[in-house]
């Protein structure tokens, strides 16, 4: 298949998605702009403060947050990459016979080692 054929193949299959993004963006911007033009605007300092159950807001909201969130984000990145490795294997599973099965059992075994390690270390606890 020549490069041009490949390009036209991509255009045929993926172009509608790009087109979809453009239309959805246009729809979103259009509604925001038109809504902006027709809505009333009465800004007042009191109204523009952030909501804090009626009391005066104190300090800035961009404060430090628990490192727990960060640990879960790292765990997600590691495990999600392993999940993505499982996808091509699953798709061609019937064609790669016994060796594919064994290889993937080893891979899932390694996955389990990491998983059990994280579990025993208490990384999966939220406290």
């Amino acid at each position: 298949m020549s490069g041009f054929d490949l390009l036209s193949e991509y255009l045929t299959h993926y172009f509608p998605i790009l087109f979809f993004v453009v239309i959805a963006l246009f729809f979103g911007i259009w509604s925001l702009v038109v809504s902006y033009l027709v809505q009333p605007k009465y800004p007042e300092p009191e109204k523009l403060t952030t909501y804090e159950c009626g009391s005066e807001p104190f300090s800035d909201a961009r404060m430090p947050f628990p490192v727990r969130y960060y640990i879960f984000a790292m765990l997600f990145v590691i495990f999600d990459i392993e999940v993505i490795f499982l996808y091509p294997w699953a798709v061609v599973f019937t064609k790669i016979e016994l060796i594919g099965l064994i290889e993937m059992l080893v891979f899932i075994g390694l996955f389990l080692v990491a998983y059990v390690y994280a579990w025993r270390k208490g990384a999966l606890e939220w406290d």
């Binding site: 509604s31 038109v34 809504s35 902006y36 027709v38 809505q39 009333p40 605007k41 009465y42 800004p43 300092p45 109204k47 523009l48 403060t49 952030t50």
Partner: peptide, 9 residues
């Protein structure tokens, strides 16, 4: 659609 759009300070 016709509501005021409030952006906090």
């Amino acid at each position: 659609f016709f509501k005021e759009d409030i952006v906090p300070a």
